[in-house]
Simulated assay, not measured.
Amino acid sequence: MAKVKYYFDTENLAYRKIKPKVSKKVGVVLLFLTAAALFGFLCFVALLNTPFFETPKDRLQAREIENMQMRYEILNRKMDQIDEVLASIEERDNNIYRTYFNTTPIPEEQRKAGFGGVNRYKEMEGYNNSELVISTSKKLDIISKELVIQSKSLDEIAKLAKDKEKLLTSIPAIQPVKNEDLRQMASGFGYRSDPFTKIRKFHAGMDFSARTGTPIFATGDGVVVAADNKMSGYGNRIVIRHGFGYETLYGHMSKFKAKAGQKVKRGDVIGYVGSTGRSEAPHLHYEVHKNGEVVNPLNFYYGNISAKEYILISKLANQENQSLD
């Protein structure tokens, strides 16, 4: 019950009841209602931010966030596995493939380099799970870059492998005439006595004595770049360009079986032994050139002789006898 207030009326010498103004009553009521409303709103906001009060929409959103976090964790585990496999491939690439093909390994800092400069992940910042999303995105970007580098490296290795296979078939690796008993090797590479002047001079190839008409074989894959008798002293000669800096020359032929511009394979018959040009007897004069320089053909017969046979033919080739041209 509200207290009743009085005041003393000096004129009438009596106490009189104080009547409150209506406007004041209304103000008090409004103040009370406002305070109650504000308190209620604050309580409502507080309840909304506590786990004890969740709407169906909040529960659905919470499940979606939890599901997203779980998927990101699974994605990170898979990327870790991919990174392990990629690291193994990179190790084989540097230490096996690139070593075999004698090419420079890719530096680790180039493979693992990050992304400097501009902040690529700015739009992902400012959220509850920003750290998880940004770290996963960075890892994915780095793996993607490593895959691009490794893919280019494997393309390079594949090209080197093709070139290696082509090189192995192009190197002049067999004797140019059948020489089962190895006795047809008449004169070797180096200084020999000239059959016409009897003066000791440099002999730029090897001479294989054989009957006129004996088949002559291409010693490696290549293209015939000359089949003529325009080079003084060599008579009918064929020159094959094998690529990789290799060329071979076959001189004193009786006739040709290949012509300029023709592609040949190792073992193809390209002509026949004769004694044309500056020649003392039927034989094949055979030369090997590497990057424009004559080299000893004896070093290239690994394709059809054994180690024991190589020693024998080497002794024959190193005898300082008289050449046949």
Rank of each mutant, 00 (worst) to 15 (best):
L13K: 14
A14E: 00
I18S: 12
K24I: 10
K25G: 09
G40S: 15
L42W: 15
F44S: 14
T50E: 13
T55K: 02
D58M: 15
I65G: 06
R71E: 13
E73Q: 07
D83I: 11
S88N: 11
D93P: 04
N95W: 08
I96H: 07
R98L: 04
N102M: 01
F115S: 06
Y127V: 00
S130T: 00
S130P: 06
L132R: 08
T136S: 15
S137K: 14
K138A: 00
A158R: 05
K166M: 07
I171S: 00
P176F: 07
N179T: 03
E180A: 02
A186P: 09
K198S: 01
K198F: 06
K198P: 05
K201L: 12
M206Y: 04
A210M: 05
G220F: 06
V224Y: 01
V225D: 02
A227K: 03
G235E: 05
R241E: 13
H242T: 05
Y250Q: 06
A258N: 05
G261T: 01
K263A: 13
V264A: 03
K290N: 00
V295K: 05
L298Y: 10
N299T: 08
F300A: 04
E309T: 04
S314A: 01
Q319I: 12
Q319W: 10
E320M: 09
